[in-house]
C-alpha cells in the first residue's frame, strides 16, 4: 500500500485558540479513511488544511510525495484533492449541470484568445466538459435534475451535488465533510453505496462522519480527534473498543450511534 497523503505535525491557531495541535495523519491509497470526533474537535479545520483552504500555523502536508503546504487551494484541486463542505457551498443560483461544469475548469486548458476565436480545440473541450459533467450527475443519480436550480434541491440532493461537483474535478483523493448530515436513513444507505462506488473508481476517500453506522460499515481506518489532538487511530473494531474514545464521546454526554 502507498501513502497518498501525509500530514506532519499540523498545528492551527486562531488567535489564542488551538484548533489543531501537532496532528500527524497518513492516508493510504485506495482506502476509506474516517475522521471522527466531537463537535469542535478540529476535523473541519484539518480538512481545510489538507485542501489548502487554511494555511497551518506550523506543519507540512505532502500529497503523492510532493509538498503542497502554502499553495493556493486551486492547485490542490488541480493536483487531485477534491472536497465537499460541511456547510453546503454550492453555486446556489446556477443549475445543477452548471455547478458540475464549473468544476471541470481545472481539467480544461484553452485560454482567452482561443475562447474568443472558438477553435476546434475549444469545441472539443466544451463537449467533453458537458459529457463528463453529465456522467458525474449520472454517477450520483441526479441526471434527471440537471436543469434544476441548485438552491432549489432538497438537502440530500445538495449534498449529492457537492459530491458530483468534487468528482468532476477528477480527484485521486476525495475529502468529504459530514456528507450524511441532515440525510434520512434511506439517503444514508444510498450514500454508503456511493462512497463504496467512488472507492471502486480508485479514488481514496477521507471522510468526516458522525454517523457511526456508516463509519463502522465502510471505513478501513478510523482516526479520532478530540480538542485538536489525535487520541486514537485503528480499524473500526479497535476504535469501538477504545477506552479513550468512549470517554471523549461519553464525557461530553453526546451519543453517536
Amino acid at each position: 500500500m502507498r501513502t497518498i497523503l501525509q500530514a506532519e505535525d499540523i498545528t492551527v491557531r486562531f488567535g489564542g485558540l488551538v484548533a489543531l495541535n501537532g496532528i500527524n495523519l497518513s492516508v493510504q491509497e485506495g482506502q476509506i479513511h474516517a475522521l471522527i470526533g466531537p463537535n469542535g474537535a478540529g476535523k473541519t479545520t484539518l480538512i481545510n488544511v489538507l485542501s489548502n483552504v487554511t494555511t497551518p500555523t506550523t506543519g507540512r502536508v505532502t500529497f503523492n510525495g510532493e509538498p503542497i503546504t502554502g499553495l493556493p487551494a486551486h492547485s490542490a484541486t488541480e493536483k487531485g484533492i477534491g472536497r465537499t463542505f460541511q456547510n453546503i457551498l454550492l453555486f446556489a443560483g446556477a443549475t445543477v449541470l452548471e455547478n458540475v461544469m464549473i468544476a471541470r475548469h481545472c481539467r480544461t486548458k484553452y485560454g482567452l484568445l482561443e475562447a474568443i476565436l472558438r477553435t476546434r480545440n475549444v469545441l472539443n473541450e466544451e463537449e467533453t466538459v458537458c459529457q463528463k459533467a453529465l456522467q458525474e450527475l449520472e454517477f450520483v443519480g441526479m441526471a434527471d435534475k440537471a436543469s434544476t436550480i441548485a438552491g432549489n434541491l432538497d438537502h440530500g440532493g445538495q449534498r449529492l451535488l457537492e459530491i458530483a461537483r468534487a468528482l468532476a474535478t477528477e480527484p485521486s483523493l476525495l475529502l468529504l465533510d459530514e456528507p450524511s448530515a441532515g440525510m434520512n436513513p434511506q439517503e444514508v444507505n444510498t450514500l454508503m453505496d456511493l462512497i463504496l462506488r467512488i472507492r471502486g473508481r480508485g479514488i481514496t476517500v477521507l471522510l468526516i462522519e458522525h454517523n457511526m453506522q456508516l463509519v463502522m460499515g465502510i471505513a478501513d481506518v478510523v482516526t479520532v480527534l478530540n480538542f485538536g489532538e489525535k487520541i486514537a487511530e485503528g480499524t473500526p473494531k479497535e476504535i469501538q473498543n477504545n477506552k479513550d474514545v468512549r470517554e471523549a464521546y461519553l464525557g461530553r454526554g453526546i451519543q453517536y450511534a
Binding site: 464549473i102 468544476a103 481545472c106 481539467r107
Partner: peptide
C-alpha cells in the same frame, strides 16, 4: 466559455470557485 463560467463562479462564491480549481 470556461472563462465566463469561472468569472460567474467567483461572483457566486469566491471560496467554492477556488476549491473547484478556479
Amino acid at each position: 466559455s470556461r472563462i465566463g463560467r469561472a468569472l460567474h463562479a467567483i461572483r457566486m462564491s469566491d471560496l467554492a470557485a477556488e476549491v473547484m480549481g478556479v
